[in-house]
Amino acid sequence: MEDDKHLIKRYLNGDDGAVEELVEKYQKHIYAFVYRMTNDIEEAKDLTQEVFIRAVNGISGFRKESSFKTWLYRIAVNTSINHARRDRRYESGIEESVVEDRAETLSDMIEREKKDLVREGLARLPERQRIAIVLRAYEGLSCRETALAMGCSEGAVKAHYHNGVKRLREIVTEAGYEFRP
């Protein structure tokens, strides 16, 4: 797949097809991120679209101080935060995890419940702790990339991430679950 810099250059030279390629390349990452921030498919779809529309509107102002991917995540972070401030309800509305229609062993059931607990715990973390965990653990962004996406220092990212993970561990152990050996 073509390098982001070349795609942006092509776009700035008037080739709209480059936008299509950029969206195809990152749409799944952005959708996954906003879904983990909202826990709602429809909202995640709307927000993903909003992120890419904002990106298209602002791409001529992209200064290449960070990578295009990090810049896109920054738009996604801001869009998610704005959405959360507009609509507080999603914080408590966690969709039920998809349960496959098959016989479940007791240990499988316990594992699933624990995962649901972790997922709910993540949704209830303070916003910036949640963003730091989602970007670092789920999206695989480095500390530096996460700092650029969140618009804060690397030290702040480490603190948000560490405090968030610590709180999640407390939630799991307080509920009586054990971590896998």
Binding site: E21, Y31, A32, A44, F52, I53, K115, V118, Y138
Partner: peptide, 28 residues
């Protein structure tokens, strides 16, 4: 804990969504 976190999947919005989004962005 991190393994548990990341093992929870994200529901797929469907092929129509993945096809429509790049087209919408291009039109925009």
């Amino acid at each position: 804990l991190l393994s548990d976190l990341t093992s929870t999947g994200v529901p797929d919005p469907g092929e129509d969504f993945w096809k429509a989004l790049p087209h919408k962005a291009t039109m925009r």
